[in-house]
């Protein structure tokens, strides 16, 4: 029973973090209908920013959060301007974005490999506290709780943006129907650019916690993170950023329960869940209707 409780608490913490890992991918898809296959590589970049902040400059890695946001603006805005409007004028933006961002992801992976080498990099354990915090008698490292707290904060901030700001209303309008949003005078391009930058910033923030929850960061980690994010997004609901929270929780709980009771199959969890969800409910757990894209 104690093992089950531990797996559930661990699964929730792990799942909340993976909600943050996947939410940027879903935000970008929801607003622009483009698939950012370089999402995992942007997460890895966030991990390297944290590594530089901590190991190179000696600051607490949490300082990498504002730097990741700034980096997302500096990199994301020109990238959006250069790529996204062209993609959206094409006949099949989803498929073209798939190919284009795959290429961008490979370039980022190669560049990080050249800049940092292929070896694993990690952050000092004590930087986020070297103790453990217990809830319901279940002790988890401080870093897990901080990762979950930051993830919840980011998700709440995104929720607040969607439900309490004019730009957020406009974003939701574009997600509902891009053409109607254009017809009502919404600056679709500007709102999309903000969503794109926000998606990259969320990826960068998630990257800061990767060395704590996944042991270390290395250039090759991006592909796996993209795949896992994609599975989480589909489980929740493609195009609905808040559905990613449900997807993340299902993924986290599934993984931790499998680790506890049948560890060698734990990496099958996201894909088995993905298969089941696609077969039973193609629109995802929070989806309203099947997509016909």
């Amino acid at each position: 029973m104690e093992l089950l409780e531990y797996a559930i608490v661990g699964g929730i913490l792990y799942g909340v973090f993976f909600s943050l890992v996947g939410i940027g991918l879903n935000l970008i898809f929801g607003v622009m209908r483009i698939i950012n296959l370089a999402h995992g590589q942007f997460i890895v970049l966030g991990g390297y920013v944290a590594w530089l902040v901590s190991r190179h400059f000696g600051f607490n890695p949490l300082w990498s959060i504002p730097l990741s946001v700034a980096g997302a603006i500096v990199v994301g805005w020109p990238l959006y301007a250069a790529v996204v409007p062209r993609l959206q004028r094409s006949d099949d933006p989803e498929m073209l974005s798939f190919i284009l961002f795959f290429g961008i992801g490979q370039m980022i992976e190669a560049l990080t490999g050249m800049a940092f080498g292929a070896d694993q990099r990690s952050l000092p354990s004590e930087a986020l506290g070297s103790g453990n915090i217990g809830v319901l008698g279940q002790q988890f490292p401080d870093s897990w709780w901080i990762a979950a707290a930051v993830s919840v904060s980011c998700i709440l901030a995104l929720y607040g943006y969607f439900s309490h700001t004019r730009l957020g209303y406009a974003t939701r309008a574009i997600m509902a129907d891009r053409d109607e949003a254009l017809a009502t005078g919404i600056s679709v391009d500007r709102v999309s650019a903000i969503a794109f930058v926000a998606g990259l910033a969320l990826a960068g923030i998630a990257g800061m916690f990767v060395p704590y929850l996944l042991g270390s960061v290395s250039p090759d980690l991006g592909g796996e993170l993209t795949t896992t994010s994609f599975a989480i997004v589909i489980i929740g609901s493609l195009g609905n950023p808040l559905g990613t929270v449900i997807g993340g929780l299902v993924f986290g709980l599934g993984t931790m329960l499998m680790q506890t009771y049948y560890s060698s199959w734990s990496n099958v969890v996201p894909y088995a869940l993905l298969l089941i969800i696609v077969l039973i409910r193609p629109s995802g757990l929070l989806g309203k209707e099947a997509r016909h894209a």
Binding site: G10, P141, N267
Partner: peptide, 15 residues
């Protein structure tokens, strides 16, 4: 056994 790509051992260690 765990997957070759396993990167999180916290819950496993508790088990």
């Amino acid at each position: 056994g765990v997957p070759t790509t396993e990167s999180n051992y916290t819950v496993l260690l508790h088990t």
